[in-house]
């Protein structure tokens, strides 16, 4: 454990050894680890996520209140990075070896090599704190300014807060979509059906848009849904850097104590969302590809 939870919970309060032992007993920390594990599995199977140690609230209600912001952030980031990645991937793959292709591959490889949280801090310093000649133009942390009231101003404020965190995630994540889309377009390049399409007299753009892309999208769609685990990892660090009130920041707050019931709760949510996305990928593949449906 990063620290003893009982010690960090009683920090700042005069506590006797007997009180610490009592607290430890009431949290179940005096039991051997295997017994705690059995208790945890039993509770989780019965839908009991327990009580958070640092917030005087149940884990389930904490997760419920933080779910929305995370879905908003991850949804926005995924949508933008998939659109950007697929577009760049199609362009690069269609003219592979061109200057555009090499530039796109180089930029995405460099961005992929950055730690997400570091890019977040750099963007934070540049656009939020303001560096040198660049003024502070975007808010630094949180999801909204509580002093702003009214539906429309509030929405605009949330959007303003959303820009930097989602930009950070997009910049790091889009590279993998470029790579996947690029290689699946290249796989299609030599196919006879493209020759047929050209022979029919279609323009190059039409051959690409109406014939090559739909086929190349098939393997890509699955991979997009399977990458959700990586996006969750990015969300944890990005939310931490920007104090975005979502599940990732909650995980970080839980980790600092460590608030074990809360950590277990967020872990269960993250894992089940990955499993759910795998399921969605399977179902979607059947809808998109008639050949799979026929089997």
């Amino acid at each position: 454990m990063p620290a003893d939870p009982v010690q960090s919970m009683t920090r700042g309060h005069p506590t006797s050894d007997a009180q610490m032992a009592a607290l430890r007993r009431s949290l179940g920390l005096d039991k051997p680890i295997w017994l705690r594990f059995i208790d945890f599995v039993n509770d989780a199977l019965h839908g009991r996520l327990g009580q958070s140690w640092q917030f005087q609230q149940s884990v389930a209600s904490l997760i419920g209140s933080r779910l929305g912001p995370t879905v908003l952030l991850m949804g926005t980031a995924t949508l933008i990075s998939v659109t950007l990645g697929l577009w760049l991937g199609v362009r690069s793959g269609w003219r592979h070896g061109s200057l555009f292709d090499r530039a796109a591959s180089g930029v995405s490889l460099t961005l992929w090599s950055m730690p997400t949280f570091w890019l977040g801090m750099i963007l934070l310093v540049t656009f939020s704190v303001g560096l040198g000649p660049i003024p502070s133009i975007l808010p630094a942390n949180g999801m909204s300014d509580p002093s702003i009231s009214g539906a429309l101003p509030h929405t605009l404020d949330v959007v303003r807060h959303l820009v930097l965190p989602s930009m950070t995630m997009v910049l790091v994540v889009f590279a993998q979509y470029v790579t996947i889309m690029r290689s699946s377009i290249i796989d299609e390049l030599g196919s006879p059906y493209l020759l047929t399409a050209r022979a029919k007299g279609l323009t190059d753009a039409d051959v690409r848009r109406k014939h090559a892309v739909p086929n190349a999208l098939l393997p890509t769609v699955t991979v997009i849904f399977l990458h959700i685990g990586g996006i969750i990892g990015g969300a944890i660090t990005v939310e931490t850097v920007y104090s975005w009130p979502g599940l990732g920041y909650l995980t970080y707050q839980a980790l600092k104590v460590p608030d074990l019931p809360l950590l277990q709760g967020t872990f269960i949510i993250f894992s089940s969302s990955v499993i759910l996305m795998n399921l969605v990928a399977d179902v979607l593949y059947r809808i998109l590809d008639p050949r799979v449906r026929a089997q």
Partner: peptide, 10 residues
């Protein structure tokens, strides 16, 4: 199926 960063954190 397990997300890697939450697993590593846990």
């Amino acid at each position: 199926a397990l997300p890697s960063l939450p697993l590593a954190i846990s």
